[in-house]
Computed example of a mutant assay.
Amino acid sequence: MKLKQYLYSQLAITFFPIFLGLYFITSIVFLVKIASLTSIITINFFELFTLYTYVIPQIVFYTMPISFFIALVLTLSKLASEYELTVITSFGLNPIKILKIFFPITLLLSITLLVVSVGLIPKTKFLTKQFLDLKKKEANFNIKASQFGQKFGDWLIYISEEQDRAYSGVKLFKTENEKDQFILSQSAVLNNDKGELSFKLKEGKAFFINDEELNQVNFESMHINDSIADSKLENFSTVYDYWKLQIKRGTNIDDLTFFILTSIFPLISLFLVITFGYFNPRYEKNRAVAYSLISVVFYYILVKSISDKIFLHALYIIPIIWVFSTYILYSKTIKKEY
């Protein structure tokens, strides 16, 4: 039990600096991307923070598997370089028993990453698109007072005064099906009902003019909806329904396979951990970091190159190939020595 706690403490000491460093760098990249949106829409600090919270699952997903795998390798290599692994092995704990100690926490991590990638990331991406769609709509409603040539959807619009989305002296005009439509309203307000924007006109007149007749309609209240084309943003009900629909359509399947295979990467790479972590400091150099980075890059290339061609079949083909290959590597190196 004390040995288990000691190994976990050594893992924590190694893991958190790596993870926090990668998290900070990745956060900067995402914040720059979010800040670039200010050229299209106007957002305040709270909205900027909201968008950042939406990308936290993506940051965790991209940094956690790499950080944990490298931390595991570095933990064992550090113990090996300080001859602690030699002492541990002398007490009868071979590499497989060390691997069993790290297995539960690695399994828990992979399950957590599956929840984050398959569950949270699609939801937060939907919320981000919904937020940006709303802000773009609001930007299109940014009508200035006493300016000609402004458009509100298909309508040409002119307003006399504007204050905090409340307008007065509103005039709207458009031509549709060879019929001119002209609306006069004393006042109007912009309504936002759960992201659906509409223009509510009060106390006005509407004129419909063609070559043969002119019709006038007096109104106390009029709503103009769908003046701006709605985006093709679909509703997000549940994660299961979302992925079921994507698989049925044959879309985003490569994302699903990438999410799952990346989430289980630390779990199926445990043989690599002991292969790279174990070495004799008297006769061998510590190349744990280099080997770890090479294996991470190779795995990601393997996932992207194969999953794009065989799609869902990659979910069992790649793990089988990876576990079998890493076990062969372990058998021909560390298993012989320990």
Rank of each mutant, 00 (worst) to 15 (best):
T42R: 15
L20N: 06
E212A: 14
I70Y: 06
V323W: 06
P319M: 11
I301C: 08
F199I: 01
Y158C: 10
K123N: 12
I310V: 11
G204V: 04
K129T: 11
I34A: 02
E47Q: 15
I59C: 07
F219S: 07
V296C: 10
D211F: 11
E138D: 08
F173T: 00
I317F: 12
V296W: 02
Q130M: 12
G21Q: 11
E213D: 15
Y338T: 09
L79G: 01
L120R: 04
K171Y: 13
A166Y: 13
W322H: 10
R282Q: 11
I13Q: 11
T53M: 15
F271N: 01
S269V: 02
V323F: 10
F91H: 06
I268C: 03
L93E: 00
L120N: 07
D308P: 01
Y300N: 06
Y242T: 03
S36N: 13
F258Q: 08
G119V: 09
S227D: 04
K179V: 11
S146H: 12
F16H: 08
I13S: 11
D193Y: 09
A166E: 15
P319D: 07
K194I: 07
L3Q: 03
Q216A: 10
I159L: 12
K135F: 07
M1L: 14
F131C: 08
V87M: 13
V239Q: 02
F61C: 04
A80V: 05
S263L: 14
D226I: 03
I301P: 02
K248M: 07
L99P: 02
K232D: 15
Y83F: 12
S263Y: 06
Y6A: 09
V189L: 12
L51D: 00
N218I: 02
F126V: 08
G149M: 08
K144P: 00
Q147E: 09
F324E: 01
I40R: 13
S292P: 04
S27H: 03
I28G: 08
S231K: 14
N191S: 12
F103L: 15
D241T: 04
V323P: 07
V73P: 00
I66D: 02
S221I: 04
I101Q: 03
T26V: 13
S90V: 00
T175V: 14
P95E: 01
N210W: 05
T275G: 05
I274M: 11
T42A: 14
V118M: 08
T128C: 07
K144R: 07
T63P: 06
E203G: 03
Q150T: 01
W322G: 01
I28R: 06
F46H: 13
Q246L: 10
F46E: 14
T326P: 00
L132R: 02
S331W: 08
N252H: 12
S67F: 07
Y299S: 07
G153T: 01
K136A: 05
S81K: 13
V239D: 03
L245I: 04
F69H: 07
E212R: 15
S90H: 00
I209Q: 05
L109V: 04
V116G: 05
A35N: 05
Y6S: 12
I98E: 05
I268D: 01
I56R: 04
K304H: 07
